[in-house]
């Protein structure tokens, strides 16, 4: 998996990590059962505090994307694969939003509203 964080971004670092890893699980780049690197290793690679990575892993676990098991570390949860359809729908929504000239923020706000 490829994970990037931008220090200049307004998003908190742990949220950037969550977004990056989640996107790759949804895209199928990371498959169910695949092991993520140990939090300590990922933190060293990205020169982040290990708690930042642990926080990101906890968010991903709470969202059901990964399982955290003692001794085995973080593993991609067995519910991936259901995302292919969602991925296609999102592509369609983005195309539609572009046509209408909506900004990403406006689209996100619409989706959030629809959730509530």
């Amino acid at each position: 998996m490829l994970v990037t964080v931008d220090l200049a971004s307004a998003l908190p670092l742990f949220e950037q990590l969550v977004a990056g890893i989640r996107a790759q699980i949804i895209a199928g780049e990371l498959r169910a059962g695949e092991r993520l690197p140990a939090a300590r290793e990922l933190a060293a690679s990205l020169e982040l505090n290990v708690h930042t990575v642990l926080r990101a892993y906890q968010v991903l676990r709470d969202e059901g994307f990964i399982d955290l098991r003692r001794g085995r570390g973080a593993v991609v949860a067995h519910r991936a694969g259901d995302y292919a359809q969602l991925g296609r729908e999102i592509d369609r929504v983005v195309v539609e939003a572009r046509k209408l000239g909506l900004t990403p923020n406006a689209l996100t706000a619409l989706i959030r509203k629809a959730f509530e």
Partner: peptide
Amino acid sequence: DLAATERAVWTQH
């Protein structure tokens, strides 16, 4: 295309 402020890692098992 990595920005100067970007950090990245690629990892695989």
